[in-house]
Design a protein around this nucleic acid. Sequence first.
DNA 1: CTGTATCCAAAGCGATACTG
DNA 2: CAGTATCGCTTTGGATACAG
Lengths: 121, 121
Amino acid sequence: MNKINTGFDVVQNIISGKWKSIILYQLGYGEKRTKDLLKICEGVSHKVLNEQLKQLQQDGLIKRAVYSDEVPIRVEYTITDYGRSFLPLLKEMCDTGDKHLKKQGITAYDHKVCEYNESQA
Amino acid sequence: MNKINTGFDVVQNIISGKWKSIILYQLGYGEKRTKDLLKICEGVSHKVLNEQLKQLQQDGLIKRAVYSDEVPIRVEYTITDYGRSFLPLLKEMCDTGDKHLKKQGITAYDHKVCEYNESQA
DNA sequence: CTGTATCCAAAGCGATACTG
DNA sequence: CAGTATCGCTTTGGATACAG
């Protein structure tokens, strides 16, 4: 891990990785199952999702609950109070980005927007 | 570049890379020469600094001015209005991180804090 | 359903040397 | 002082197969 000199480093460690910020942000709205997160993080691989979830746990930002009595097994992730303390920042990140997406129009970037054409499972 | 679905992606593209956020943040306080940025971004390599500066220019966040009549040559970087629109977010990132650095104490992370034992140039 | 391990390709970045 | 190019190491992350 990198040397941490500034608040920026703290935040970057929290949200480094392509999915951590969105995971945390979404958990702010309520607990989620693994498969839900897999859907929310559209395009994430199985492996990377678990890696980032594990890091978020180790950093104390989220909690993992296993309901092994059920079948099939169910796992729920919830945000911790510590994780919650980052929500205002995440909200502002999201808002700032969205504002620029709208203002500049979509064409400024190589992307597709909100294509949730999932027919759900 | 990655597919952009959310505001998060916009922001992550802006501040991805270890130094962009701090460069932008510092330029918010006024223009800086290359060598100044090299000092501010303690530990950055010559190559990476220039890469990130170039990306910031291409994204329209900063401007580069060359004073080639002087000797030795002088180059100044300034923040643009567009770049300035990200400053509130950067401020919050910095504050949020700093707050947690202070609150948790140093021990929560594998790092060394503010070791500016540079004897300056 | 959930998580781990292996393999492999791409990206990130530091060190160094070199050009203006 | 400022910037580029090359090399090689490290990290990241996707695909896939496998285990509980």
